[in-house]
Simulated assay, not measured.
Amino acid sequence: MDPKEKFYRHFRDSVEGLQDQIGQLTHMSGIGGERQEATDHILAGISKLQNEVADAAEFTPAYDRRQYSEAIKSVQDKLNETLAKVAPKSRFQFRRTGTDHVDMGAPENDPRLNPGSLSRRPHNPHDAPGATRDISGEAEDIVGDLPSKQKDYNQELAKPDLSSIRKPSFSAAQSIGISDQTGLHIILPSSAARATSSGSLRDLKNCVIDLSIPTAQGAPFPGLMLKNVDRCLIVTGRVSGPVHINDVSNSTLVVIARQVRIHNCKNVDIYLHCASHPIIEDCSGMRFAPLPSCYLTEADESTENQWDQVDDFKWLKTTPSPNWTTLSEAQRLDDEVWTKVVPGKPGCSVEQILNKVGIPPK
């Protein structure tokens, strides 16, 4: 299918879904946070759609982007009107300027490249197309230790946010790096497929992180490091090279990789598709299962899965290692958990998702 047509259909379906969700707000109770959770979910959906329009600028003409912009404004207006009816003093309002049209495909209006744009701050002439811009060092858009002029996704994630689900774009990043986060639900959108260097997930606690969308149809990540992770659910997506898993505890992982090396981990369930023998060292309480079918692609199915051929390098006896075992079919999570619970929904907290996948309460 032509990319323009494919995106048009996706955009149309997304707008219809958001409009349906907005229509349901009037039937939700304002007590107990039900309406608040639903509103947060809608706001996250609008933000995601804005980001996707910006990402699609490379193959959509300006006229189409104008139509998409107007459609998003219409959704925003409908949300504002609905909230005004059910909660007149609601703080969830999209501010407008006198500008009739905002081209979200233009770099100066991309909310990830220029946080606070899209009519949320005064226009800066230095941000206009053709204006001189310092791009030194932008090739390394890696999260963590970044120059001050570059986007720090970890800093962005640490800020208070209306949505319970964070969807950082990483559209300009060469690698994925998320660190020093607690209690977040993070889902990478398809724009993160542009990352072509090995990434890392470090110092995470009580988080749900899903990296699978960028690699479901696009190229796999070249490599990935997990380090210092506790009570997390992590879906790594497809990785063409090695995945190094160090100092992970009380967690559930979904991993698709050519090689997997696991060091100093305990009480971890790993749903795995691996082209070679997984290797563990200094580990205990490791439980392995095959990859859930909902994450399998044709490329994965054509490769032998050696998920249960685990080598324990610290167990030299001829008897089976006591440090790992396999999950029986009855113990494995079913596809409904992966497809309906893990992606999140209004009213479902990170803690509830962790409990659903078998991670005990803290």
Rank of each mutant, 00 (worst) to 15 (best):
E329R: 13
G218C: 01
D282A: 15
H10N: 06
G285E: 10
P361K: 12
R287Q: 14
P129A: 10
E329T: 15
V235I: 14
E301I: 14
R65I: 03
Y68H: 07
G237H: 03
D110I: 04
Q174A: 08
V260A: 12
G223F: 06
A106D: 11
L224R: 08
P320M: 13
D110S: 06
T82P: 06
A106L: 15
S90T: 12
V255H: 00
S175G: 13
F59T: 04
H41C: 06
S164W: 07
V229Q: 08
S212E: 03
P168W: 07
S284R: 14
S47I: 00
E156G: 10
T236H: 04
P147D: 06
G17N: 13
N228E: 12
V337Y: 10
S190G: 06
S249P: 05
T60A: 12
T82R: 01
F92A: 15
L25P: 04
I31H: 13
P168C: 08
L18P: 04
L25F: 10
Q217P: 00
A158P: 00
S119R: 11
F288W: 07
D308V: 02
D334E: 14
A289M: 03
T97D: 10
I359R: 06
S249V: 11
R258K: 14
P147F: 06
I245K: 02
L43T: 12
A330V: 15
P343W: 00
D55W: 15
M286G: 04
Q76V: 01
S90A: 03
L327A: 05
P107D: 07
V243L: 11
L354G: 05
S191C: 09
R12A: 12
P320Q: 09
